[in-house]
Design a protein around this nucleic acid. Sequence first.
DNA 1: CAAGATTGAACTGTCAATCTTT
DNA 2: AAAGATTGACAGTTCAATCTTG
Lengths: 149, 149
Amino acid sequence: MSTKLGLSQLKAWSSLLVGHARIFQKIEREFDAEKGVVPFHWYDVLFILNQQKEKQMRLSELAETIVTSKSALTRSIDKMEEAGLVKKVQCAEDKRGQYAVMTAKGHAALKVSWPHYRTAIYNHFGKYLTGTEARELERLLTKVSGPQK
Amino acid sequence: MSTKLGLSQLKAWSSLLVGHARIFQKIEREFDAEKGVVPFHWYDVLFILNQQKEKQMRLSELAETIVTSKSALTRSIDKMEEAGLVKKVQCAEDKRGQYAVMTAKGHAALKVSWPHYRTAIYNHFGKYLTGTEARELERLLTKVSGPQK
DNA sequence: CAAGATTGAACTGTCAATCTTT
DNA sequence: AAAGATTGACAGTTCAATCTTG
């Protein structure tokens, strides 16, 4: 396997590191004291669950989707369950499995949080891109994250 | 302040989240058992120090450069000092300040680690991009991370 | 034995408080 | 009072070990 890492690729890599860190630093800074706005990781979970019919998903599948580890997800989901935003339900077909199911309170939290995130994403990310640039950035980031699995 | 976050911008945002997470997951996975290869954050520190004349930098400046908090950096640098890769030296002009200075062992660790990172960055990132695409990705990520400060 | 999920122990990062120097 | 840096307490993450079911 070759290792021809060119200078332009290395600079692109560096811009990914720094750009991602900067943007996140700014966005997370905004929501420290907000009321009813859930933390980013929770938002991610609720966002994905909301896309599913039945508003539920298997834990292992959810972990893959939001790109985290099974153990980290178990702990997040337990916290979210304490907060009443999801509940865990045993799988009927496969007794090893668990579903995370979004509750009404979870759906409400998603709705309350979204305008805040939308504004932050716009102010610290979206407003710097034209539509064409946004589509090109998406294309390149998708390409570069490689084949699934 | 407006909140016109378009769909293309939102999709670009999502690709940044997922892309970054996927690529990092793969690269970090590769170095669990490697010998003499320092963790990513340490590599970052050594890389930056190596660019400086005198191979040293003030802690607060270093924290800004690698986009992390002062307290997190203090803890990293202390660990790196334990491992002998840097040492801390009090600033002569400003007695509040500390320099992180790369040691010979630190420089050796940088040299040992680099080929591993170069290969990983190539395999999980660089190889998916042509030179033109890499330059365009860098341009967009730099633009989108906004004005400094 | 493998897959889904959980847990304990150790580690790392974060926030606010603190200390020293400017 | 503000800046550079550190620290204690705490929350979140990771790794390997474990348990249950397939």
